[in-house]
Amino acid sequence: MSPEKPTAEEPTAEEPTAEASAEPVPEEDVTRGEGAQIAAVVALTLALIGFATGLAQPKLAAPRLRAVPSAVVTEVPQAPTYGQLPEASLGPNAEWRSHLQDLARTPGDLLAPREVPSEAAKLRALEVRAKRRAYSGAPPTIPHQVSARSAASCLSCHETGLRIGDRVASPMPHRLLVNCLQCHGAPPPRALAAAKGGVKPSHFRGQAEPLRGKRASLGAPPVIPHATHMRERCVSCHGPGASSPALQSSHPWRVNCRQCHAASAAGFAK
């Protein structure tokens, strides 16, 4: 990929650390070729432009409603009233089209540089996860209202995953299962929202999500610290479409995770 390959006797770093980056690099450590240098410059320049462009475009969609030029606004059809609905010709509006371009770029730009999340951000992300899980490995409860009857609506977003602006529906991390509410607890139905209390709660304290996995040696890929049963599709949480950026892989273009990261057996009983 780049000409800045370390010499053969030196191991490849898994990812740069802030500490190491502060050290100057003696030029003689680096072998290089002229053509490759130019390619690297071009690639990095493009990447930086992409990065700057990304920074310039706020992720929140709401303010853009006002930012659309008036000429475009005129193309946006007026929303019909309920009475007009049966006769109304419905179609995508201009605003929606402009969003689609953004959508196409967001998860697709795998090689765009991304900030290395801080330890604090990772911990915060794990905390958010833990709120919806009884223990590490528990099926998460559902944070939004769902159809009480059928899983079809769940699958429309979560089968392959979906991102709209900053809202993410994670793809299911396990094989396709179609009775979603069998395992994932829904929020209280609105009809029963008034129901309170009744019995005292459980003080069950679940096993916390483990932190980073161990490395066999410095620079070795870490092992997967959590059980992978029902979490076989790593990209669900660590891929480019992950709901929490802090848990995303630093190398989202690689898709065969367990080629390098050994699965943890979690010590299940035989």
């Binding site: 800045e4 370390p6 770093a13 740069p16 410095l218």
Partner: peptide
């Protein structure tokens, strides 16, 4: 160009440094 290269090299060479320090 020189500075650019230095910066680019930072990342991948870090392990070498760590190794040497060790």
């Amino acid at each position: 160009r020189r500075e650019f290269l230095r910066l680019s090299a930072l990342a991948t060479a870090s392990a070498a440094i760590a190794r040497r320090v060790a």
